[in-house]
Simulated scan of single mutants.
Amino acid sequence: MKWILALVLGLMAAPGVAQEGDMRDYTPPALETWRYISDQVMGGVSEGQAEIAGPEGARHLRLTGTVSTANRGGFIQVRGDLLTPLPKGAQGVVVRVKGNGEGYFIHLRTRGTVLPWQYYQAPIPSGPEWQELRVPFTAFRASGAMLRDVPRAGDIKSLAAVAYGRDYEADLSFEWIGVY
């Protein structure tokens, strides 16, 4: 758990804020193509929803609900599948978030995450004001021993914003800006 706290604090520091002109040309999946998934697919009881929110020009995804670890569950998420691969030289993703102050995660799935419970995870903070974060691929931790230590940009198939791992009320507004 200490590494999670260290990563969250590191992401909140000034170097974690994206700088103008720092991102490569890459268009994330359209908001309309993202899908909501909960632990109910495996018998859990978490409930929530994901919706497109905000005015034209500032649209984003909003993930809300109740995360419950009852019945071996504990997550709700909104996931976007990549239509085109990330640039091979990409070092990480740039996201914009605000929320209810709870900790959340970004999950990546790659060509190597073939089982439903496999993913790469990096913590992200949330607060009442929008913040733009750079999350390097080196900050992501594999969910199991069968995966590479660090995901390769060209292998990434999807990205998800996730409320995970403990009982709480989730309210996260999220936008994937691009890669750097």
Rank of each mutant, 00 (worst) to 15 (best):
Y119P: 00
P151L: 08
P151I: 11
V67C: 06
S126C: 03
A161D: 02
G89W: 01
V45L: 05
M146G: 04
D39V: 14
L82Y: 01
A170Y: 09
V41P: 01
Y26V: 09
G127M: 13
W130H: 04
V8Q: 09
V179F: 00
Y36C: 13
R62F: 02
A53F: 06
Q118F: 02
L147M: 07
I4K: 15
N100Y: 03
S68G: 07
V8F: 03
K98N: 03
G178T: 12
I177V: 14
D81K: 15
Y180L: 15
T64R: 15
P29M: 00
T64K: 14
G103L: 14
I124A: 04
R62W: 06
V97F: 03
M42P: 00
A50D: 08
M23Q: 13
R109Y: 08
A18D: 14
P136W: 06
E175L: 03
V17L: 02
A163H: 07
S126A: 10
R96A: 07
A142K: 10
P55D: 10
Y168A: 14
D81H: 15
R111F: 00
Q118C: 01
S158N: 12
L11A: 13
T110Y: 01
Q19G: 13
I124W: 09
E47P: 02
R59T: 13
V67D: 04
G99F: 06
R152A: 13
A170I: 09
D149N: 08
E175D: 15
F140Q: 08
A122G: 02
T110W: 01
G92P: 08
V45R: 11
D149C: 02
V114K: 09
V67M: 06
A58E: 04
V78Q: 01
T113L: 05
S173H: 12
P15H: 11
T138I: 08
L115Y: 07
R152K: 11
E32L: 04
E32S: 07
P128T: 15
G21A: 10
V150R: 13
A145E: 11
Q131E: 14
I4N: 05
A18V: 06
Y36Q: 11
L9C: 10
I156R: 05
V94F: 06
A90T: 15
D155E: 09
E56H: 07
I177A: 05
